[in-house]
Design a protein around this nucleic acid. Sequence first.
RNA 1: GAGCCCGUAGCUCAGCUGGUAGAGCAGCGGACUUUUAAUCCGUUGGUCGCGGGUUCGAUUCCCGCCGGGCUCGCCA
Length: 524
Amino acid sequence: MTPSQAEFRAWPFQEARTIIAQRQPAGDRPVLFETGFGPSGLPHIGTFAEVARTEWVRQAYGYLTGQPTRLLAFSDDMDGLRKVPLNVPQPQMLEQHLGKPLHVVPDPYGESTSYSAYMNAKLKAFLDAYGFDYAFQSSCAAYRAGHFDEGLQILLDKVADVRAIILPTLNESRRAVWSPFFPVCPDCGSVYATRVTGYHPERGTVDFVCDGQVGQVPGCGACGELPVTGGHVKVGWKVDWALRWFAYQVDYEMYGKDLIDSARLSGRIVRLMGRRPPVGLTYELFLDEEGRKISKSVGRGVTVDAWTRYAPLASLLYFIYQNPRRAKRLHWDIVPRCVDDYLAALRRYPEVPAAERPEQDVWHLFDRGRRVPEYGARVDFTTVNNLIAALGTDSERVLVDYLERYDPSARRYRDTITGLVQKGLNYYRDFVLPGMELRSPSSDERAMLRDLHERLAVADEADEETLQAIPFDVARAAGIQPRALFQSFYEVVFGQERGPRFGSFVRLVGKDKMLEMLASRLQA
RNA sequence: GAGCCCGUAGCUCAGCUGGUAGAGCAGCGGACUUUUAAUCCGUUGGUCGCGGGUUCGAUUCCCGCCGGGCUCGCCA
């Protein structure tokens, strides 16, 4: 490590240095970065953020040490469906599957083989869209493949100690019956209607009875003895976390501040099992407009789908990168500004001396600086959105042309510019256009617009000055202030108070198009 | 009760390892245009929550307090 690398202050480097200090990885196996996902509901920005941020730490770690690393995205699809989320279809159908592991609950969207498969696919689609290099691991598959067998036997051997750690944190009423093990009922498939009635460490099994109830779904009454290994039994939340840390020897995992207590307990359990917990970063949660935690099951806040529909994906990553330890409210207002900040960062990047680039946000976002897009145009997202509103046009081509006249250097970054225009248009079409009311012209206005139409029809469309003079001639002829004419014109034709310069707009869209627009409004 | 975060210009927020504060929007003034602009220039405005400490010097570090918010304490 060079001295300059030791001084990098960007947070992924700070995390990486903590790993070096606390875990002292020898490099004899890939250093493992884990991120956990609960497929009990639709992934939200926090879910994506966790993977993205973990990936950035991993990249920084690899940069500092040159050691092999691995990112494991773990999905707990053995978790049971405890309640039906408010924001997914077919609640009645799901109601019947309460208590079963998510990987056997049907997909309410009818697109995937199971509930969790659908949720997992959403997560993977996002990660793949950005080219994240990760290994996906389903919990169910891990249990069945025996990844956890060694740890499960240890937990069974030390079940009294595990209970001693967890019981004080539980409600008095649950302490007597609580077990770290959740048998999957071989008859009805429920994980939450069962309870353990006896432990047999010497045989590696537990006794169980399926006599509980989840929602309106009762247990089937089955009972018997099951091996704790091989996926017949899962372990409960905090124990499960510890089990993963143990089995995979996780070196690094971040989590939201809501899981601080859980992480502490899981840390005690993994130590009990004989290994050290990973280095962890607790990040602040993303909040909705009202400052409340964003929820998987209720669906508040700006969704990832919405962000990427109305703004570039990279701008979302840019937002996610910022200050993980700081709570951020997520509402639409911040998005355009975030895009502009992102563009500004791209613009600055080439000026930054090579040695200092790892301190730049975009260095982390784009493959350790290897794929940072070039962007040198003045055009920013605010400009684009203002222009869309001003021109009131739905045409991508017209907008791009206009922007390239406004800033000729924009031609060199046409892909980026086009992207901005497309996202801005999505927003315009979805939110501005439907609510826009074109006012019908009054009789006076009708006369002026007709006059405008007539004069324009005979004008030379190649001369912008001539075109620009027309509305003033109309105003003069009608004996009113040009300002009043323009206001009427914009309100009636564009549905807004202000608009583009008349002459240049006609030059751009063409005289015929303008005549057509006027004619159609004259009929209103 | 415990933990985390925040408290900087009217609003939304930046301020990285300490050297008397910045942006965007809003406001005000001006330019340009045949008094329409997505334009450009200029400009007003802050005891950096309060009180201590460290320091030659703190918005920036430490302690305490006040105020606001969230999370956990039901379950995984």
